[in-house]
Design a protein around this nucleic acid. Structure first.
Lengths: 217, 217
DNA sequence: CGGTTAATTGAACGCATTCAACACGAGTGG
DNA sequence: CCACTCGTGTTGAATGCGTTCAATTAACCG
């Protein structure tokens, strides 16, 4: 991890006003290498993070060594926003990342600012809804449906029809509660049905949106 | 559902100060019969709820008719606290319930009150941590482990060693992402190993805490 | 090119589901 | 008091989905 320099470039964050200001004035821009840990599971919750460049994954390792990926965070996303005293999930850089970091105490000092509160609430809302969807997916969806779901959610982030996976098969599997082999099989299966197309293992394009939507369940 | 009378009994809520006051002054006490809906999935988020008597379950029905139970709420628990505009999960009374209901606008009017804010934040924290644990359980635990986990969490609520299940097997199954048959089999299996004991299908006692803890993973 | 890691594919296994039958308890009425 | 019913829980046998283990192929990088 490299401490780069205090945050000054306002272009990096979306115009969230108070939040942007807090990041601008009191944030620090950090860079992380691929697979570098941003914070560890069970670390104290001290900072609020925003992705400037790259993709971040949160994950939890159980006592038996099993891993569950919590979520993936893209440019503009806030993360590390856990209400508890310490992190249940750790955060790692999926690829080379640039992250804005600001102390929670600083954020709290800005509290009362309506726009900042809204931004935090909004991030919490998004976080919770993702968790709820995740629960339904893991509890009640088949492997095929989970993979379809995942591809759709990735594709919806990008505006054009081509999408690229920032993560490898193991990360997908650990997010979806499956094994890499099953993920791989489902992908080739979907490709065989011409629903999606993978020119390379990290790039894909959805061919039949309706079919995929029907699958996503 | 029966609108009983405006809330006046302070004993019903724990001394959460501002929250208790908000419920006292502006809350309404409602009663619900077994299996009655408290609010529907996709309903607008309008109220904050607190269990006074009985047990509440939240659940989501997918388009294909599959059901995922979100959580169970016991006396004193706050629920309905979703940050989004509408409920992703519906809420139903597991048995005959008494619920305190207060408009969110009223809660918001009390905002700024440090103790109220803390109570809300605390409930949000609990909610989120439960969701996170739920994700790990559904994603990375076997049927045996899930059932063991569930029994432990139930047992930890009561103070004595005897615990009773407010919910039936179907609710357990839909919470754990399993079928009733699998839940039943795991229960008899655990009982066969003398780890737990079920004098009746809704009452149990943990015999070997360490064994169960080891299983819960 | 080799060397290394990631992804795919195949075959066998096993855990959880499915489908079906049976047991149990509570309530109801003869 | 027993027979009947209905809802709920348990048990059995067969199936199947996803995993496991192993081998192969593809991608990446020196």
């Amino acid at each position: 991890m490299t401490l780069a320099y205090p945050m000054t470039d306002p272009r990096a964050t979306r115009p969230d006003s108070a939040l942007t200001r807090a990041f601008e004035r009191h944030g620090v821009r950090m860079t992380y290498d691929r697979n570098e840990e941003i914070y560890a599971q069970d670390d104290e919750v001290e900072f609020l993070y925003q992705v400037v460049r790259g993709v971040v994954r949160t994950s939890r390792l159980t006592a038996e060594g099993r891993r569950q990926v919590g979520d993936f965070y893209y440019v503009g996303d806030l993360f590390g926003l856990e209400p508890g005293p310490d992190h249940r999930f750790g955060a790692e850089a999926l690829d080379d990342c640039e992250i804005l970091v600001v102390r929670r105490s600083v954020v709290r000092a800005f509290a009362g600012d309506a726009e900042l509160d809204r931004a935090i609430l909004e991030a919490t809302r998004v976080e919770m809804e993702r968790l709820q969807d995740h629960v339904v997916m893991l509890g009640r969806k088949s492997a095929r449906e989970r993979v379809a779901c995942f591809l759709m959610s990735i594709a919806q982030r990008g505006e054009d029809d081509h999408a690229n996976l920032a993560m490898g098969r193991q990360d997908m599997a650990d997010y979806l509660g499956l094994t890499i082999e099953t993920v791989s099989r489902m992908l080739t299966q979907l490709q065989g049905e011409a629903i999606v197309e993978f020119p390379s293992s990290r790039h894909f394009q959805i061919r039949k949106w309706t079919a995929l939507e029907a699958l996503a369940a």
